[in-house]
Design a protein around this nucleic acid. Structure first.
Ligand SMILES: [Mn+2]
Ligand SMILES: [Mn+2]
Ligand SMILES: [Mn+2]
Ligand SMILES: [Mn+2]
Lengths: 220, 220
DNA sequence: AAAATAGATTAGTCTTGTCTAATAATGAGG
DNA sequence: CCTCATTATTAGACAAGACTAATCTATTTT
């Protein structure tokens, strides 16, 4: 049974591999607010325990066992986030840190019952998929909003950075998971984008924002 | 901010002082499944941090600060137990260990919202009082069932030992918090007691069981 | 190709929390 | 008052997880 710190390291590797194709010491350290040297030591231990392969100087890859653990941890994290937002009335910008703690509570029964209680949700409050008990993730095809062109009709599927600032900015513009938008114009100069929600008037989004919005095709 | 282990020690001292009038090293160790020597070290540290007074060889007493912390921890523990039973459908014999972990999640907002979500309950699934946000406990006058005499009408208010075995035994006899009983006879030989629930026929309870049931006066 | 830089690793230290073994204090019975 | 069993404390060891400082590797720049 991995310790809390081990779990967090495994999850960091998993997330980095999701986002790119490599999990480097420095990036893991940054994510966990640790020093790189501490991460190196941890990676060596996790490699010995069979959760990952550590290729010194070239980062880490998860083994099947490591991936399985990571998926369960991600499942717990996202189920708790869902609980906090749907049942306790937290804002979507307030749940990350708390879920970061709750995900480490050890009880399979707890997660089974929580999952059932929430209605076996497939997505968390940020639109991220929740792996099922077996670790299976329902796949969707999404693209970043900043890769869309004028005239595209889209629906916000997920926010890929859950920093408080971004989430509150989205709140202030009335953007949330499920919101439908039409891309009116993309400005080459700064990459900003004018979008129009189904109801309401158009406004502009900076590239910083549109880059972190995952969208799926919407109907015109 | 106390660590998890510090919190557990403070709570153990609190509970022992509730049950008797002293918290000795050995009993704390037993409760926490640690060795006495480890507890001594911890008590010294907690005394330095101002949570308690440690009188070597005579046990520990909480300071006001320590009592405040203990009450908040007890609050969190019992709120989570309530959540697990009332919302997730756990049995009352299954929640202790999980709540033992959840109580350590650090977030004041979480507990406020959980409390509101549960309807600001005053008692947990075992009938134990839940301190409010300020640490105030609603007092009741209860007595142990084994101190009752033939003819007494009582209502089960709390179970003072939450071992799985006892709770399941109570389940099997249909006894729970709020059940009303009439004491029919007390047998001097073994201290066992015949009781009759409001509806249903009478049965016998051993002294081991009646000793752990807290009751309040019921109507005849 | 050499040098510079960024990143990674190693070595050694510290803190926390636990243990075992040795020693000491307390309180009860004789 | 002495002895003994119980309980508590101290001392010393260890493992986990973090850090800093020193060293090393890979890659980019000159
Ligand atoms: Mn975490
Ligand atoms: Mn999320
Ligand atoms: Mn606990
Ligand atoms: Mn309880």
């Amino acid at each position: 049974m991995p310790t809390r710190s081990e779990e967090d390291h495994i999850k960091a590797v998993y997330t980095l591999l999701q986002e790119g194709d490599s999990a480097f010491t420095k990036d893991i350290a940054e994510r966990l607010q640790n020093k790189a040297s501490s991460v190196t030591v941890m990676l060596k231990k996790l490699a010995e325990k069979g959760f990952l392969k550590h290729e010194p100087y070239y980062g880490a890859k998860l083994t099947a066992k490591g991936r399985g653990f990571a998926l369960q941890l991600v499942r717990r994290h996202r189920l708790w986030e869902t609980f906090l937002v749907e049942r306790l009335g937290f804002g979507w910008d307030e749940v990350h840190e708390v879920a970061e703690q709750m995900e480490h509570v050890k009880s399979e029964k707890l997660i089974d019952k929580l999952d059932a209680y929430l209605g076996k949700p497939h997505f968390d409050p940020h639109g991220d998929p929740i792996p099922d008990k077996k670790g299976v993730i329902r796949e969707r095809k999404t693209r970043r909003l900043d890769s869309c062109a004028a005239g595209d009709h889209v629906r916000i599927a997920a926010v890929s950075e859950t920093t408080d600032g971004l989430l509150r900015l989205l709140d202030s513009k009335g953007l949330r998971i499920g919101t439908s938008l039409m891309v009116q114009e993309v400005h080459a100069f700064d990459g900003s984008m004018d979008v129009k929600p189904k109801s309401g008037s158009a406004f502009s989004l900076s590239k910083d924002v549109s880059h972190h919005l995952q969208v799926e095709k919407g109907k015109p």
